[in-house]
Design a protein around this nucleic acid. Structure first.
Lengths: 255, 255
DNA sequence: CCCTTTGTTCGGTGACATCGAACGCGCTCC
DNA sequence: GGAGCGCGTTCGATGTCACCGAACAAAGGG
């Protein structure tokens, strides 16, 4: 009723399960009654799903309220660990951070969005853990743009159709044609810049990580605008990024 | 049919969903037919669940085979980020690793098992990422024993009933009475030692992290036996652990 | 101590999860 | 190159079980 698209050939019961999971996250844990009201289902239904999840560690009960369980962390670590990009790029990202003193990021994409897969701190690790494992739009950050630039044209179109080009700052690219020009430029020069297009005052530069003709992800360096001038990005940092990419390519080829 | 305990009041459809998820992990991705055979359900059933999961990013399709998706990593990072222990203990673990040059671990427990929530490398980060986010029995590592020692007696019994005391090495405590003696000792001296009880040649020392009268987790230092002698553990390292614990306690109190 | 609100249990019932057969495709192997 | 196997996917028919709502049991709060 609330979701208009029931046309899909999925399992409805799973749909409510996932809704409950998302609700538990949004609210940082919740009770049965609260969940039932929010999801629009009976209390007993919610209770049933929670019981199943509890048996598998996806949910824990503290007092009267249910919370998402560490089983998610378990599976999450597994999924990340399976990514070639992650295994081949970790060390490169570490070194990049040491050499530049700025944040370094390993990024990949799934379902038309980019995810921060691995990051190293620069000044403080707090920000890293805030972003780590979160989804981002691909049009407004260096890594995402670097990936988009090397994706088939129809896939780029599909992604833009699905997720749009929301403005994060005044400098975000929100026009389709403008994005295509930018992607062509990135393809040509081999790297993508982000000048306050995602967060005001944050600049970044990213390069694509390709393997077997496909973009697997991107490697990027980000930091405050006053330190990451266009000149520094396209000079020192780009050189280091190129070296790191090369190292990762080799590592991917011989994995 | 394969599972004998259908007595639980859960949702059967969720049960097969979780079975599929686990199968996808065990096999590092699989096709519909393979999953259907392994789970003992119809292909169309599998396909339905996969479609639902795909819509929510829990699964991705590469070619003809399905793999677990990065949505798990997203939720996983969220769950860890909500742990008080993690937010309050990260920095302490970092410093501990720098000061001792050994691996440091932040551990917590759920459902009677311990999980490695945060770790820093010591010599190599590879091992850290192997263990990070995995479950462990609580009776055979320092952090787990430190937690057990400060849990109510009936809960300890329930845990042992559920998970048993499997022998990981020749030195693993496999006897219930012996475990209880050990736990009493730990309670008295305030720290737990692990001398090759989990992995041969690996020693460790752990202290409990308590807050509001409850054990929230444990902090531990681990490394090769030849460097982590009983004397060093109970001397220098214990001192540093105590300092770190104190810092975490303060951080927890004022969170 | 009542009275509200919570989590939990319990049958009854119709929606829907499940099944099996059929389809279309890509592959291999004669 | 076409016959045949295997795959993922679709489609109805069916009977199971996910769902509901009411009743129950604890747990606070006034």
């Amino acid at each position: 009723m609330n979701r208009e698209s029931d046309s899909k050939r999925g399992v409805k019961s799973d749909e409510t399960l996932f809704a409950l999971i998302e609700l538990l996250r949004e609210r940082d844990g919740a009770g049965v009654t609260e969940l039932a009201r929010a999801a629009g289902v009976a209390k007993s239904t919610v209770h049933g799903h929670l019981t199943s999840m509890r048996d598998h560690g996806f949910v824990v009960k503290r007092g009267q309220t249910y919370h998402l369980g560490l089983q998610f962390f378990d599976y999450g670590q597994y999924v990340r660990g399976r990514l070639d990009i992650f295994r081949a790029g970790m060390f490169a990202a570490d070194r990049l951070e040491r050499e530049t003193g700025e944040m370094s990021w390993l990024i990949t994409h799934q379902g038309g969005k980019a995810m921060y897969v691995y990051g190293r701190g620069g000044e403080n690790d707090i920000d890293v853990n805030k972003l780590l494992g979160t989804w981002a739009h691909m049009h407004c950050n260096s890594g995402g743009k670097a990936i988009l630039a090397h994706l088939p044209e129809d896939e780029v179109n599909r992604i833009v159709d699905t997720h749009g080009l929301p403005a994060r700052t005044d400098d975000t690219i929100t026009d389709r044609d403008e994005l295509n020009e930018e992607l062509a430029r990135i393809r040509e020069q081999g790297y993508a810049l982000n000048q306050s297009e995602d967060l005001a005052g944050i600049h970044a530069i990213g390069v694509p990580l390709r393997f077997e003709g496909e973009v697997q992800g991107a490697l990027s360096v980000a930091g405050p605008a006053h330190r990451l001038s266009k000149e520094r990005c396209e000079g020192e940092i780009l050189d280091r990024l190129r070296a790191a990419t090369n190292e990762i390519d080799v590592s991917l080829a011989y994995r």
